[in-house]
Amino acid sequence: MENDLLGKLDIEILKQLATEQLVEIIIEEGEIIEKLKVSRDLVRIRLWKALLGSILKKTENKQQENQEENQIPKRKLGGQAGIGEKRERSLVE
């Protein structure tokens, strides 16, 4: 109806309007509110999808890093190679 005038309406003007006009204004406002609720919900869904997508990417990157670390051969425990053999020989002699 008169969406431009709705923002400018004050109490005195609303009192002068007929009941039918007031009902039309209320119905239009209700429709606008419903549209805003739907758009708000869509925005929330998009934000959650974006957030979950970034979290999934981070976990995938961590898994790839862990796989790369597992492929690198690690040093054996026990210090320098061959020292244990020398120590054993000296104890035997």
Rank of each mutant, 00 (worst) to 15 (best):
E12D: 15
E31D: 14
K58V: 14
K57G: 06
D41C: 07
K35G: 01
R40W: 05
L51D: 05
V23S: 10
I55N: 05
I55M: 11
N61G: 04
K62H: 09
L51F: 10
I26A: 15
L14W: 03
L42D: 15
V43P: 01
K37A: 13
W48K: 09
E31T: 06
E24L: 00
A50C: 03
K37L: 14
Q16V: 01
I27P: 03
L14P: 02
L51S: 07
K57T: 15
K58C: 10
I26G: 06
L51I: 00
R46T: 02
K57D: 14
E12W: 03
L56W: 05
E20D: 15
G30H: 09
K57R: 15
I26W: 11
A18T: 08
E28Y: 05
L22K: 07
L36G: 06
I33W: 05
L56T: 09
E34M: 04
E60A: 12
I32T: 12
A50D: 11
E28K: 08
E34K: 13
I27R: 12
L52E: 03
E34N: 12
L22H: 00
E24N: 00
K57F: 13
E12Q: 11
L14S: 07
S39R: 13
S39K: 08
L22D: 02
W48P: 01
R44H: 10
N61H: 03
L36F: 14
K35H: 08
T19M: 01
L36A: 15
I27H: 09
L52R: 05
I13S: 15
L52H: 07
V38A: 10
T19I: 07
E29G: 04
S39Q: 12
I26H: 15
E12V: 02
E20M: 06
L51T: 08
I45L: 07
E28S: 11
V23Y: 09
L14N: 04
R40A: 14
S54Y: 08
D41M: 08
K57L: 15
K15V: 06
K49R: 12
E20Q: 09
K37I: 08
D41A: 12
E34H: 07
T19L: 14
I45M: 09
K49T: 11
R46G: 10
T19D: 10
L47N: 04
L51C: 04
K37W: 08
I32D: 02
Q16S: 15
E20G: 11
L17D: 08
E31L: 12
E31C: 03
L51R: 07
E24V: 05
I25G: 00
D41H: 09
S39F: 07
I32W: 00
A50T: 07
L47F: 05
I13Y: 11
I25E: 00
E31V: 03
Q16G: 14
E24M: 03
G30I: 02
L36P: 08
E28V: 05
L14K: 03
V38D: 13
I27S: 11
E60T: 05
I26R: 15
I26Y: 13
I26N: 10
L47E: 08
T59D: 02
K62F: 10
T19R: 05
L51Y: 00
L14Y: 02
I33Q: 10
K57H: 01
L14V: 08
E60N: 01
K58P: 00
I25N: 05
I27V: 12
E20L: 04
Q16I: 02
L51G: 00
A18N: 05
L14T: 00
L51K: 06
T59K: 02
T19Y: 09
I45V: 10
I25T: 00
W48V: 01
